[in-house]
Design a binder for these strands. Structure first.
Length: 477
RNA sequence: GGCGGCAUCGCCAAGUGGUAAGGCACGGGUUUGCAAAACCCGCAUCCCCGGUUCGAAUCCGGGUGCCGCCUCCA
């Protein structure tokens, strides 16, 4: 059974049939690098990662490209300035750095967070600023084909009326846009809905030469130009957050198809936004979480990852710290089983015997993933099996086979076998001594002393657990 | 005003015609020196009204509520 995905372009579930047999070429809309990436950004990036993992696991030769948007874009959202200042420049002024330094810094932050959340590395992370010539070339093609027009000292616009299919992705056809219009018409544009391909504005810090004067590219053109360069004019999958559907992706389609480079992306997959505490995440509401915020609260990367992927990507997700606490327990249980199985299988040789229940669970797990990345369903299957394995813990080769099953699931999930990336703070000498003294006390059945020491260590953030194979310690959140 | 989506246990959430997965929380147990972990048992008839059907959370119609997008946004 092939993987099926909800294609925003057709508004239906479609089977993934690669343009080129056995190969998947995928473009993920990546981060805009002028602030710390937040959990909402990562919900979208994780959608790309889950697809990548699913295709890899199914044996496709996958090429994954994620852009880095390091050209700032006009902003009107920050209440402080409704003037349309560039976000990168705004940040640059605030921090007294040049925009390229700001961009680079946040790009590094993005990669760091991505690695904390165990995203598989994409094959390319092209930066917009490294592809200005490619963008200029595409704009020239659009001008030649009559899909664009230049306005002296202003820039170049895409002529939306020249592109019949405009609105095909979002439903915002020109007719619909007109009837619901709330935009002020810019006199220099032929149509209110025409969007910028190249902008000229002296005040901008980031500037490049172009046939139309020194300026900077419009927001949408980078994805059209870079996807063409790295994936070709027709490729399989394009992903992003739901807010990208319009205008960003709609405009990308118009540009790429208009430039005559091919069919562009066949399947468009969009992640719904997540809410925090039932409301849209925003800094002013105080419900805005970056990955770093959660790390500071003591959550591990794999815990954050689990929490962000355990819901269906097409359902609005309500993120809460209480929910994260619960998800943390769930993922801990998976990792505990892994540890127990590893201990139970030490020294055993793999064999080829098949455990029918494991096979069945694996089949069901895969079927859920194939069904539009039904992670909730897949996790249900996994947890069912985990409970059964915990009830009657296999040993030896059977434990190895159970581990194989977990590993199979974790090729998608990426939360069970990943190393805990939080820095391991070693025990202090006095803490080690306390543990020693407690061991002695327990051996002498001095329970009250043992309990006292355990409490003391807990107060210092060290969690002591006595198991059948001995006492272990770990850092308590 | 235009386009689109959602409504299932205290919370998160799967299930798209055959009689309600799973996780967290909660209550009761087993185990443990005690705890932790693990395991066992318990815990919903699916927003409302009407219709189709032998049978609906699932399909249709009508309500109600909530959310996203409409050129800042993952």
């Amino acid at each position: 059974m092939a993987l099926r995905l909800w294609n925003t372009l057709e508004n239906r579930l479609v089977e993934v049939e690669p343009v080129k047999a056995g190969e998947i070429r995928m473009y993920n809309c990546g981060p805009t690098v002028y602030s710390d990436p937040h959990i909402g950004n990562f919900r979208s990036f994780l959608l790309g990662d889950l697809l990548r993992r699913a295709f890899d696991q199914r044996g496709f030769k996958t090429t994954q490209v994620m852009n880095i948007t390091d050209v700032g874009h006009l902003t009107t959202d920050d209440v402080a300035d409704a003037s349309g200042e560039d976000k990168l420049e705004k940040k640059a002024k605030e921090e007294g750095l040049d925009p390229f330094e700001i961009a680079l810094r946040y790009e590094q932050m993005f990669h760091e967070n991505a690695s904390q959340l165990h995203l598989v590395k994409a094959h390319e992370y092209p930066r917009a600023t490294d592809h200005i010539p490619e963008m200029i070339q595409m704009i020239e093609q659009l001008l030649e084909r009559g899909h664009a027009y230049a306005v002296k000292d202003v820039g170049v616009y895409f002529r939306v009326h020249s592109f019949e299919k405009y609105g095909g992705l979002s439903g915002n056809t020109l007719e619909n846009l007109d009837s619901g219009s709330r935009i002020e018409v810019d006199e220099r544009k032929e149509s209110a809905h025409d969007f910028a391909l190249w902008k000229i504005d002296d005040k901008h810090l980031m500037q490049w030469d172009s046939p139309w004067g020194r300026g900077f590219p419009g927001w949408h053109i980078e994805c059209s130009a870079m996807s063409l360069k790295y994936l070709g004019g027709t490729f399989d999958i394009h992903t992003g957050g739901e807010d990208n559907i319009f205008p960003h992706h709609e405009c990308e389609i118009a540009q790429s198809v208009g430039a005559g480079v091919g069919e562009f992306a066949r399947i468009w997959v969009h992640a719904r936004h997540l809410l925090v505490d039932g409301q849209k995440m925003s800094k002013s509401k105080g419900n805005f979480y970056t990955i770093n915020d959660l790390v500071e609260r003591g959550f591990s990367g794999h815990e954050i990852r689990y929490s962000l992927i355990c819901n269906h990507y097409r359902q609005p997700m309500n993120f809460t710290i209480d929910g994260m606490d619960g998800d943390t327990k769930a993922v801990q249980r998976l990792r505990t089983l892994r540890k127990k199985l590893e201990e139970a299988s030490v020294g055993s040789a793999a064999d080829t015997e098949v455990d029918a229940p494991l096979e069945e669970s694996m089949r069901q797990f895969d079927a859920c993933i194939d069904d539009d990345l039904n992670l909730s369903g897949a996790l249900g299957v996994l947890h069912d099996r985990v409970r059964a394995l915990g009830r009657d813990l296999p040993e030896g080769s059977a434990a190895l086979r159970a581990l194989e099953f977990l590993r199979h699931c974790d090729q998608i999930l990426g939360v069970i076998f990943v190393e805990d990336e939080s820095p391991t703070v070693p025990l202090t000498d006095s803490q080690q001594q306390l543990i020693q003294r407690r061991e002695t006390a327990r051996a002498e059945r001095e329970w009250s002393l043992a309990d006292e020491i355990r409490d003391q260590l807990l107060a210092e953030g060290i969690l002591i657990e006595d198991g059948p194979t001995g006492t272990t310690w770990s850092h308590q959140r």
